[in-house]
C-alpha cells in the first residue's frame, strides 16, 4: 500500500480528462449502497463498481472491483463486498466510496501513460494493456509534445502492433482514434505541468473509437 495525498481518484481524473476532450467512460462516486444503486439505474445496466481510495493503488488485487453488475440487487451486494474486502486488506485505508460506471464492451486493451524524465521532461508511453504491458514491457515512448506523426510511429513501433490490426479474426482497433487520443493526452500534459504521472489503463480500442476505462493522475 502506497500512501499519496497527490493521487487523484478515478472520478476526479476522468473529469479532468473529459474536459480536455479525451474520451473516458464516465464514472460517478457513490458514498452509500443506496447511492450506488440509484447511479447505476441512471446509467443503465450492466455497471462496474470500483473502490475509490487514495490508499489503494491496485484495486482489483484487494477485491476492490466488481464487473458486469446487471441489476440493483447485484449492485447493492457488490457495494458491501467491495467495502468489506478493502477494509480487510487495508484496515488503515481512507475510503471515499465506490465509483460507478457503465460496463464498456470489451475491446483491444491498450495503455497510454505519462511520466517525467529527469533529462527530457514529460514523456508519453503507449503499449498493449492489461497484464501484457507488465510482463512483456512491449511499449514505446515519445517526448512531449507528441505530434500526429510521432503518435503514428509510436503505435506502429510496438511488437504487438498486429494485434491492433485485428489478428485472426479479432476486431481491429481504430488506429486513427488511438493517434488522436495520444496527441490529445500530449496537449493535456503540456497544459497541466502540475501532473507528475498519468496512466490511462486500460483503454478499450474498438474498430471506430477508443475510450479510457480506467484512469489515474498523480500530481507533483
Amino acid at each position: 500500500m502506497i500512501k499519496s495525498q497527490n493521487l487523484l481518484n478515478e472520478v476526479e481524473s476522468k473529469e479532468l480528462l473529459k474536459k480536455a476532450g479525451i474520451p473516458v467512460v464516465e464514472a460517478k462516486l457513490a458514498q452509500s449502497k443506496k447511492e450506488a444503486i440509484s447511479i447505476s439505474k441512471e446509467m443503465g445496466f450492466p455497471v462496474v463498481l470500483k473502490i475509490s481510495s487514495p490508499d489503494v493503488i491496485h484495486k482489483s488485487d484487494s477485491g476492490g472491483v466488481e464487473l458486469r453488475l446487471a441489476n440493483a440487487t447485484q449492485v447493492g451486494k457488490a457495494y458491501n463486498e467491495i467495502i468489506s474486502s478493502v477494509k480487510q486488506a487495508y484496515p488503515e485505508a481512507q475510503i471515499e466510496g465506490v465509483s460507478v460506471q457503465p460496463m464498456a464492451p470489451s475491446g483491444v486493451e491498450v495503455i497510454v501513460g505519462m511520466s517525467k524524465d529527469p533529462q527530457f521532461g514529460p514523456v508519453l508511453m503507449f503499449g498493449l494493456g492489461g497484464i501484457l504491458v507488465e510482463v512483456l514491457k512491449d511499449v514505446s515512448f515519445r517526448i512531449v509534445p507528441v505530434t500526429a506523426r510521432d503518435a503514428r510511429e509510436m503505435i506502429r513501433e510496438i511488437k504487438g502492433y498486429p494485434i491492433l490490426e485485428g489478428y485472426r479474426g479479432q476486431k481491429p482497433a481504430s488506429i486513427p482514434a488511438l493517434e488522436k487520443l495520444i496527441v490529445k493526452v500530449s496537449q493535456f500534459i503540456e497544459k497541466n505541468p502540475q501532473i507528475k504521472e498519468l496512466d490511462l489503463n486500460p483503454i478499450f480500442a474498438y474498430p471506430d473509437k477508443a475510450i479510457a476505462v480506467d484512469a489515474r493522475i498523480i500530481l507533483e
Binding site: 501513460g113 508511453m125 515519445r142
Partner: peptide
C-alpha cells in the same frame, strides 16, 4: 514510480525514443 508508465520509463528507453 506510482504509475505503470513511470516504472517502465528507463533512461535508456527514453533516450532511444528521443
Amino acid at each position: 514510480a506510482m504509475s505503470h508508465t513511470g516504472s517502465l520509463a528507463s533512461s535508456a528507453a527514453i533516450w532511444s525514443a528521443m
